[in-house]
Design a protein around this nucleic acid. Sequence first.
DNA 1: CTTCGCACTTGCAAAATGCAAGCACCAAGA
DNA 2: TCTTGGTGCTTGCATTTTGCAAGTGCGAAG
Lengths: 142, 142
Amino acid sequence: MKQITHRSNCTISCTLDILGDKWTLLVLRDMIFEERSSYREFMSSEEGIASNILADRLALLEREGLVTKKVSAANKSKFIYTLTEKAIPILPLMAELVLFGATYFDFTSTRPPELLEQLRKSKAATLKKYADRIRRRIKEAE
Amino acid sequence: MKQITHRSNCTISCTLDILGDKWTLLVLRDMIFEERSSYREFMSSEEGIASNILADRLALLEREGLVTKKVSAANKSKFIYTLTEKAIPILPLMAELVLFGATYFDFTSTRPPELLEQLRKSKAATLKKYADRIRRRIKEAE
DNA sequence: CTTCGCACTTGCAAAATGCAAGCACCAAGA
DNA sequence: TCTTGGTGCTTGCATTTTGCAAGTGCGAAG
């Protein structure tokens, strides 16, 4: 896995040192909005991430403490990736990615489809809903 | 300049196709929070962007309509890069990058130093302040 | 008419990404 | 027990992107 080097002590720069690439936030998107949790599920996203890149990014997210990896109770050859409490502050950032993209581009869509409308109607309520869902999954995984 | 290909029609994915790298948002940061406007000024940021990468990213931002490039009135061998109205929706995203980084990392700092405190006190007022500043500069550049 | 500042461009090395194939492990069925 | 299939990767190699240092062109200043 690539070693993270912080180019400066600027808050924005440090954040980009972790999240500033084309794939990491897409994996987090799938975990947050689609409750995906396995390697296979991440691989199946339509953007088509390469398997070695996915392995690299999952390891990075785990090392950063944003995600935990556990053997599935039902199938010992399967791993379950779960978001951590530390990942919850990513939600407002993710929301702004959606809102920016929706104003900047035509013909894009969100998943779930109602996400954009919900964010525009009440950002706080929408963020709370997804935060609650993450916390519920953390408890279920324990 | 690299050609942008949209990997899917997902709003988040499309946004990352433009902004998802380690340098583009740093250039925008310098324009937004430090009112930098020239190649030299962008080069002088402490993260140390390579000159060819900077040229590439400025061309991309210009092509995307987020930035305009004009010859300086005072010096014909100098160019002035100015944010456009289209770039203003990036402000909330930039704010969340700051807020995430500030909770995630210790020992980071913002420029201006009071930015974090202002965002925490009143996000809306802070965003308005910077939006107004961008609009003022657009008018000045005309 | 020369030197300087400014905005790049170029050539080449290094690193990251993309792609296809292969591997190790567990589970389930014959 | 042997095989087949699901799952989560790893590996090797080609391509693309990035990083670095040096060079270029052009208007301004002396």
